[in-house]
Simulated scan of single mutants.
Amino acid sequence: MDTTHETAAPAEAEVDESRLRWWERRTEWPMVALSVLFLGLYAWMVLDTGLSPRAHARIDGVMWAVWAAFAVDYAVRLALARRRLRFVLRNIFDLLVLVLPLLRQLRVLRLVVVLLTLNRRVQARVRGQVVLYVTGAVVLLGTSAALAVLEVERTAPDAEITTFGDALWWTMTTVTTVGYGDYYPVTGQGKLIAAGLMVAGIALLGVVTGSIASWFVDRFGGLEQSMSASADATRRLDAESDQLRAEIVALREEITALRKEITSR
């Protein structure tokens, strides 16, 4: 009876969690579209220095509305999750980047919400396509970081990063952990972005290194299996050859014995 109860409990949990998966499937593409919209508006706001204060405020308002949609999505997923504490612990970073942008100094973290959403929704679609996933992640991360660091740096005193080209170059040298040092952030927010970019760069390099190592293991593993199979086939042929030789020797002995018997007669 206890075994039946233990077996039924996970099944029940699986049925309950299906509501969460249903919601995530239904909101997958709308959330991706909102993420792309947010990135487009953010790039427009940062790169178009001729925006009027009124237009800037309108764009910022739409971006906050998109961020609010992300917050609603998190709240709905939390409500649908059967194990809510487990859900919160597994998505603690999502919660932090939803709450922290309420502080004016950390509003740039709204970009993190977008990046997390895109990663969560798209990762399942390109699972197994490591090259595509890593390439897309590098381009998306690099562009977002360049826009973010340009926004917080270009108006700072003694700023080193004042153009989008400078920001892109700094992003490339940082995410690849090269760090030439010709451009560097001078503000607190810029240094926060740099720290996050460094961590992301190390993680992406780890994915690339692991993929290359896995490729070599597969290639050489297949070669080793092929060589092992060839050695087994050679051993089987040798055994068959030895058996044939033994049979030939036995036949010769029988023929010799028959000849002797016929001669004696």
Rank of each mutant, 00 (worst) to 15 (best):
A145G: 04
V217M: 10
W22M: 12
M1Q: 11
L192T: 04
E160G: 06
Y183R: 07
L98W: 09
M63I: 07
V138P: 04
I212S: 04
M227Y: 12
Y184P: 01
T4E: 12
A68V: 11
T173R: 01
V207I: 10
E254L: 04
S18D: 09
L150R: 01
F93H: 01
N91D: 02
A231M: 11
R90Q: 06
E247I: 12
G165A: 03
M172V: 10
Q189A: 08
F164T: 00
T176H: 01
V46Y: 03
L20E: 05
E240A: 13
A68L: 08
A145N: 07
V88G: 00
L89W: 08
R107V: 14
L205W: 06
L223R: 15
R236H: 09
A9E: 15
R90Y: 05
V36Y: 08
R236I: 12
G40I: 09
F87L: 03
I193M: 03
T263H: 13
V217L: 10
I255W: 05
S211R: 13
R154H: 12
D158Y: 14
R120I: 10
E160R: 11
V208H: 08
T187N: 05
H56T: 14
D166G: 07
L192D: 02
V114P: 00
Q123A: 14
L100K: 01
L150M: 07
T7K: 15
D60S: 12
D16P: 09
D232V: 13
V149E: 00
A203N: 05
G190C: 09
K260V: 10
R125Y: 08
G190P: 09
T155K: 10
L205Q: 05
T27K: 04
S211A: 15
D2I: 13
R82W: 10
D158R: 07
A69G: 12
N91C: 05
G210L: 01
T256S: 07
R25S: 11
A194H: 00
L20S: 12
A167D: 01
V97T: 03
Y180N: 12
A43S: 14
L85I: 11
T7V: 15
I248A: 13
A43M: 10
V36L: 15
G201K: 02
L47G: 02
W44Y: 13
D218T: 14
V134R: 00
T7L: 15
L111A: 11
R19H: 11
R121Q: 14
V15N: 02
R25V: 07
R127S: 12
R265N: 07
A194K: 00
G61A: 09
L111N: 13
L106C: 11
L251R: 09
